[in-house]
Each structure stands twice: as structure tokens, then as C-alpha cells.
């Protein structure tokens, strides 16, 4: 079990929210010139992962990956620089926001929905081959859970008892298609039985509930019993991507949920009311986090884009394609 407190997790959520807001500023100013998918409203899930994984463990994330990167310990500066397509980014500006790779921390992403779990399965198989007691976390959404790789990967993990943890962020919407309309079962966690896997559904707005369940899932997989499926329910606060007109969801419901069910506000209230935190010192810590993110944003904004003459580099390790 992790030793992190509720306050620790709350402050991590604040850092995640401020990070996403910095990215929003980059979209508004057209510094990020591609599409961007933000995880605002889903911070309690990422913050629930904290404390259970080391650099030996892998995490493979999706197109909506910033919060998972931060949870895996990817440093904020090169992460934001990559999202802003700068030469100081993790991938030198060749990857962009959907293609974040931090090899020493075993963190990677893919922009193709449904393609995370096969890659995570490879990390889990590496644990088997090398005899390490590490786990591999593959993240998917409720939409990606309907792609074939979900079944193929979990079936292999179940049959070989590989340490694969499947984290499903069920935010109810696969772009414009609602969960109930696209999924045969009432939950995704109940699919676990098909793969001889551990399975649980948890409230993804409740950071402590996520942390507790994720700890169980990781322990189960790490102990060699096989894969685990953790479904965390949440709500996508913004459009699928920044700029999505988002006319397909009932606006009244969306506005009410963003107002009344914001995990950041829910968790802050718990920290103050149940945790007895001093509001003044908490506000100071929140401000310090905001300052940290602002400092990184300002520095990233000053950085250069990669040299255009490098556009043909890196296709092969040696020689050229033509």
C-alpha cells in the first residue's frame, strides 16, 4: 500500500490540472498546431496511480496521455516541450502530443485508439523473459476497449498469466458515441472473467478509491496470478479534442457535471473538511504549483522548434530511405 496521503494526491491533481491549462493556452495561441486531447476532469484516476509503479514498470497510454505521463514521473519540462513541438521536447519535436516516449521510465503512448494493450503486453512478456517482478499498465478508454486488441491482449495475458494491468478510463463517450450504445455489458470490468483476470469497477472521481483499487490490481499482477482489469468511471469534461464543437452531448448534463462533479473540487473539499487542512497553507501550496507550471510554460515558449533541415533524419539508424 502506498504511503501517499490524500493531500499528496490532491496536490498532484492540482499539478495535472494546471498542466492541462497550460496546454490549453498553447492551443489558444496556436503554438500547438495539431489536435490536442486533454484529460481535464480525469485527474483523480491518474493521481490514483501514484506510489505503485517504479521505472521498472511500464505504462502505455493513449491519445489522452498527459496525466499518465506526469503520474509515471515523466518530467514536466520536456513533456510540455514535446507537446509544444519544441526541440527541447522528449522526442525533439518529432512526436508531438500524441506520441510521448520516455524510454528510461518505460512510458510510451500511441495515437491509435485500441493499440495500447498489445504494446503493454510486450512489456509484460519482457518481465517474464527477464524474470523481473515488474508489471505493465496498458491504458484504454471505453471506446478503445471495443477494439480487437483488447481481447487479443487480455486473452494472451490470461493464458500465460502475464503481469498486465488494464486500466480503463470510462469517460462515457467515444468521441460522440455514448458508452451504453456501444457496449454489450453494463460494465467493462465484468469482462475480466473471460480472461481469468482480476476485475473491478471503481468511481474514478474518488482518488482514494482509485488508489486502493489500483494498488490491488498491481499487487495481483505482480504476484504472478495474471492480468487485472480496473475500470474507473469518469466524465470527459471537454470535447474529444480542443476545438471539438461537442454538439452531440446534452449541454445541460455536461455543464451540471462539470460544475457539481469536478474531481479537483471534490478532493479539495475532502482535504479541507475531512483532512482538516489549513486553507491558507493549502492555498499557498496550490499557488506554488501554479507558479511552477507557469515557469515551465514560459521557458517552453522561449524554446526553438526543431531545425527543418532534420525532417528526413531518423527514419533509419543508418543510411537514408532513398
Amino acid at each position: 500500500m502506498s504511503t501517499l496521503t490524500l493531500r499528496d494526491r490532491y496536490l498532484a491533481m492540482v499539478r495535472m490540472r494546471r498542466f492541462e491549462e497550460a496546454c490549453l493556452a498553447g492551443v489558444a495561441d496556436r503554438e500547438i498546431h495539431g489536435e490536442v486531447h486533454l484529460g481535464i476532469g480525469q485527474e483523480a484516476i491518474a493521481a490514483g496511480l501514484l506510489g505503485y509503479l517504479t521505472d521498472e514498470d511500464a505504462l502505455v497510454s493513449t491519445h489522452r496521455n498527459h496525466l499518465h505521463a506526469l503520474a509515471k514521473g515523466v518530467p514536466m519540462y520536456p513533456l510540455m516541450a514535446e507537446i509544444f513541438e519544441k526541440r527541447t521536447g522528449l522526442c525533439g519535436g518529432f512526436g508531438g502530443h500524441m506520441h510521448i516516449f520516455d524510454l528510461p521510465r518505460r512510458f510510451s503512448t500511441t495515437g491509435i485508439v485500441g493499440s495500447t494493450l498489445p504494446v503493454a503486453l510486450g512489456h509484460a512478456y519482457a518481465a517474464r523473459l527477464s524474470g523481473r517482478a515488474s508489471v505493465a499498465v496498458g491504458v484504454t478508454g471505453d471506446g478503445g476497449a471495443n477494439a480487437g486488441g483488447f481481447h487479443e491482449s487480455l486473452n494472451i495475458a490470461g493464458s500465460l498469466r502475464l503481469p498486465l494491468v488494464v486500466l480503463i478510463e470510462n469517460n462515457e463517450w467515444a468521441i460522440s458515441v455514448p458508452f451504453e450504445e456501444s457496449t454489450a455489458t453494463a460494465t467493462l470490468a465484468e469482462r475480466a472473467v473471460s480472461y481469468r483476470a482480476w476485475g473491478k469497477r471503481v468511481d474514478g472521481l474518488d482518488v482514494l478509491a482509485v488508489a486502493s483499487a489500483f494498488g490491488e490490481a498491481v499487487d495481483y499482477a505482480r504476484s504472478g496470478l495474471g492480468p487485472a482489469v480496473l475500470e474507473a468511471t469518469c466524465y470527459r469534461f471537454r470535447g474529444h479534442y480542443e476545438g471539438d464543437p461537442d454538439m452531440y452531448r446534452p449541454a445541460g448534463d455536461r455543464d451540471a457535471r462539470r460544475r457539481d462533479r469536478d474531481p479537483l473540487l471534490i478532493t479539495r473539499e475532502s482535504v479541507v473538511v475531512e483532512g482538516g487542512a489549513d486553507p491558507v497553507s493549502l492555498a499557498q501550496e496550490e499557488q506554488a504549483i501554479a507558479d511552477e507550471v507557469d515557469t515551465v510554460l514560459a521557458a517552453v515558449r522561449r524554446d526553438l522548434m526543431p531545425d527543418g533541415m532534420q525532417a528526413r533524419d531518423h527514419v533509419f539508424t543508418r543510411g537514408t530511405a532513398r
Partner: peptide, 8 residues
Amino acid sequence: PYMTGGAV
């Protein structure tokens, strides 16, 4: 390999 600027 390309998306990572040659890092992976």
C-alpha cells in the same frame, strides 16, 4: 524511431 527523434 522517427517519432522519438531517434531515441528509441
